[in-house]
Computed example of a mutant assay.
Amino acid sequence: MTEDVGTTPRKPLTPTQRLKLFETFEGRCVLCERKIGAGEPWIDEHLRALGLGGTNAAENRGPAHKACADAKTHGKDGDLARIAKAKRVKMRHLGIRQRKGPAIPGSRDSGWKRKLDGTLERRSK
């Protein structure tokens, strides 16, 4: 079975669910394990990113400082980079090619084949 890559929709928590999540982790950030102070900005972080096959289940969520979550998501080897790579790998595995622009005459993507003498001929499919 192939892994779900980036197709799970994000589902926000209700205020009651956020309170329960906060209390379950005793107000500790799941990423740095420090206490989240009163009035300090925090979010409910997916431990395994949705784009990497994570779910919206409570077991996959935890409170995290906004700064810690941003570092996890946007960092050098963060979730966004890993999601982009997973999508590229899956597309390549499925034979899906991305066009980067108009086909150059004589390239494999064009309908024309350039012969060694420089002339073009229609590519047979």
Rank of each mutant, 00 (worst) to 15 (best):
T24Q: 10
F25W: 15
E26V: 05
E26R: 12
G27H: 08
G27W: 09
G27V: 13
G27E: 09
G27R: 06
R28V: 09
R28N: 13
R28L: 15
V30M: 02
V30D: 01
V30W: 02
V30K: 01
V30P: 00
L31Y: 04
C32I: 11
C32D: 04
C32F: 07
E33T: 14
E33H: 13
R34A: 12
I36E: 03
I36L: 10
G37L: 15
G37E: 15
G37H: 11
G37W: 10
A38E: 13
A38H: 05
G39T: 10
G39W: 09
E40Q: 14
P41V: 12
P41L: 08
W42S: 04
W42E: 01
I43D: 15
I43G: 01
D44K: 00
D44S: 14
D44L: 00
E45K: 00
H46E: 06
H46F: 10
H46M: 05
H46L: 08
L47V: 15
R48P: 00
R48L: 15
R48M: 12
A49F: 12
A49Y: 12
A49W: 13
A49D: 12
L50V: 06
L50G: 04
L50H: 03
G51S: 06
G51A: 07
L52F: 06
L52M: 08
G53W: 03
G54W: 08
T55S: 15
T55Y: 07
N56V: 10
N56P: 10
N56C: 09
A57E: 14
A57R: 04
A58I: 11
E59F: 09
E59C: 08
E59N: 06
E59W: 10
N60V: 09
N60M: 08
N60I: 09
N60Y: 05
R61L: 15
P63V: 06
P63W: 02
A64L: 03
A64H: 02
H65E: 02
H65C: 03
K66N: 11
K66Q: 13
K66C: 07
K66Y: 12
A67V: 15
A67S: 14
A67H: 12
A67D: 13
C68A: 06
C68N: 04
C68Y: 07
C68L: 09
A69D: 12
A69V: 02
D70Y: 06
D70Q: 13
K72S: 08
K72P: 00
K72H: 10
T73G: 07
T73I: 14
H74K: 06
H74S: 07
G75R: 03
G75T: 11
K76Q: 10
K76W: 12
D77Q: 07
D77L: 11
D77C: 03
G78Q: 02
D79I: 14
A81N: 01
A81G: 02
R82M: 11
R82K: 15
R82D: 04
R82H: 05
I83N: 02
I83G: 05
A84G: 13
K85I: 14
A86P: 08
A86K: 01
A86S: 04
A86E: 02
K87H: 10
K87S: 10
R88H: 04
V89G: 00
V89K: 06
K90C: 00
K90V: 04
K90P: 00
K90D: 10
M91Q: 15
R92I: 11
R92N: 14
R92V: 11
R92D: 14
H93L: 09
H93M: 04
H93W: 00
H93K: 13
G95W: 01
G95Y: 01
G95I: 09
I96Y: 06
I96H: 07
